[in-house]
Design a protein around this nucleic acid. Structure first.
Length: 290
DNA sequence: CGTCTTTGACCGGCGC
DNA sequence: GCGCCGGTCAAAGACG
């Protein structure tokens, strides 16, 4: 693939403390104000009406963290997240590609079956719908579309689609209002998995890619399945950023999950005892990590 | 030939 | 009610 995403190191405890303590109580925990951090922006960072909760990036320390809290306030806190890993981490891209094949050849058939099943379910209600029109999954009247919780990442990268260990199928692309860069829509290719991902480039700083995950994987990442040694002490430093980021997300969205997050399907790699789990600011968690 | 991407059309939600 | 906009569908084409 030849992807050239820049590798980010996970924010240090202090750095995160600054961020989150300010976010939570409005007063900086140290001399470093979050507003002093380059590239920092709240919601106005993104074009269109993407509803991110906040976004954070610090060009000096080369880290990035963005969290979307959309849907968190809703009744469903069941979870969201994936396992993004920047492509040029020491995880070999070849292993990622090989792992990708796990799902190949399964998508189309299964997906079609899934779609047909869904349609079958709705048939009763829609018997008299105009069949000549394109069929979008009909919803019952008055039934509001439920949005899964979303999580957004900003990553400095030359390539739009970052390898994250999962396989995605692109199903749409739209021009973004006020932005020269289009937004692309992807779905996880695993048949039973409903996770979606949107990818767009920041119009303010085109070197940044904004990736938004929606939903929760119902399976492990093909990459983690493929190799239990996916994360070792050798490549730990490179993988830690993504894992730590995941952990942050997890803690943000699921303060009660605590240690159980380590066995969450989304975080299979965390089961590896070699992984260092950075401690998190107290504000993030009610439950100790380990 | 199977899989994936592209792309125009369609749908629903929302603001006016 | 109307128009705008984000999100999705699915046919057609590209690709390996």
């Amino acid at each position: 693939m030849g992807e050239k995403a820049e590798l980010y190191r996970f924010p240090l405890h202090e750095e995160l403390s600054v961020f989150f303590s300010q976010k939570s109580n409005g007063s900086p925990a140290s001399d470093t104000s979050i507003t002093d951090m380059p590239y920092f922006n709240y919601t106005d960072y993104l074009p269109g009406s993407m509803d991110y909760g906040f976004a954070f990036q610090n060009s000096d320390v080369k880290n990035e963290l963005a969290v979307d809290v959309t849907g968190v306030h809703s009744n469903n806190l069941s979870g969201a997240g994936t396992c993004p890993v920047t492509p040029n981490s020491s995880i070999s891209s070849s292993s990622c590609e090989a792992n990708g094949n796990v799902e190949q050849g399964r998508y189309k058939k299964a997906d079609k079956m899934k779609l047909e099943e869904e349609r079958e379910e709705d048939k009763g209600d829609d018997e008299d719908c105009d069949k000549s029109k394109k069929v979008q999954k009909p919803r019952k009247k008055g039934e509001k579309r439920q949005r899964e919780p979303r999580i957004a990442f900003m990553t400095k990268s030359e390539v739009d689609h970052l390898e994250d260990g999962y396989r995605w199928r692109k199903y749409g692309q739209k021009a973004v209002k006020n932005s020269p860069y289009p937004r692309s829509y992807h779905r996880c290719t695993t048949p039973t998995c409903t996770v979606k991902k949107r990818v767009e480039r920041s119009y303010q700083d085109p070197s940044f890619v904004i990736t938004t995950y929606e939903g929760q994987h119902s399976h492990e990442s093909p990459a983690t399945l493929r190799s239990s040694n996916w994360v070792t002490t050798r490549n730990l430093s490179a993988v830690a950023p993504a894992l730590g980021r995941e952990l942050i997300m997890q803690q943000l969205f699921h303060p009660m999950m605590g240690s159980s997050s380590a066995s969450h399907p989304l975080f299979g790699a965390m089961e590896n005892p070699n992984i260092y789990l950075p401690s998190l600011p107290d504000a993030l968690s009610d439950v100790p990590l380990q």
